[in-house]
Design a protein around this nucleic acid. Structure first.
Lengths: 120, 120
DNA sequence: GACCTACTCAACCAGTTAGTTGACAAAGGG
DNA sequence: CCCTTTGTCAACTAACTGGTTGAGTAGGTC
């Protein structure tokens, strides 16, 4: 787990951490507030937050004993950029395939057999 | 790792698997073809493909002894939907904050001190 | 039918992860 | 000053991961 992209994807692979991110999208919160709804210990949630922080998804500041957690939404762009890149490649490929099929259909509307002049 | 979203994110948390997805966006490929560039064994790549398949990112068919692997790009939508949802929530929140700050600035342009009537 | 090709399955191993509990630190409030 | 609140750190454990090797299966080719 070297690069940031791996850390971000892996961090969001855990449902508890995804839920933490979801709740932080409503606004900053303390570790205690965040931990309250879950069945696990405060320490476990603290660990989850550490993972999110190392992935760059979250940052922490200070307010007396409290350590408010803040969502850093910019990292999302990294993921969407990666996803969209390969989704588009795949879609372009489908379009080319569709075009080829359409052309085949157009030049040979009366038969399904391959034509001698067609590329193999 | 129960739900599909967790499996998809976790699957893409591994750089080798992300590279497999990237290469499959160029077109279907056999296990052997896919395994060739990596230093790891064929069996290891086969395992990675199984993870991708269980996440719904990939499907496999048959062609004699070969098992061509095919990218299923629709699952990407699951992720982008999740990401965009919470990114937008976060952005809306920032906008509201900006509005509040702008209003504060407008009503008290001559001092930085808190006013007696202001909410703490 | 013997053999090669293209894989999968099973067993094992080392390293990581997600959880636990217990102790500690930091910062007010009485 | 003690005490409570809020959270981190450390050590331990069970389960999962990513890799290995060896054996087996499915489907041509000669």
């Amino acid at each position: 787990m070297n690069d940031e992209l791996s850390r971000v994807f892996a961090a969001l692979g855990d449902p508890t951490r995804r839920d933490l991110v979801a709740r932080l999208s409503d606004g900053d919160a303390t570790v205690g507030d965040l931990a309250a709804p879950y069945a696990v210990s405060l320490q476990a949630v603290s660990k989850h937050l550490k993972v999110l922080e190392e992935a760059g998804l979250v940052s922490r500041s200070r307010d007396a004993q409290r350590r408010p957690v803040h969502l850093e939404a910019e990292v999302f762009d990294l993921m969407t950029a990666w996803i969209e890149r390969y989704r588009q490649r795949a879609e372009e490929r489908y379009q080319r395939l569709d075009t080829v099929l359409a052309e085949l259909n157009e030049t040979t509307p009366e038969t399904d057999l391959p034509q001698e002049g067609a590329a193999s």
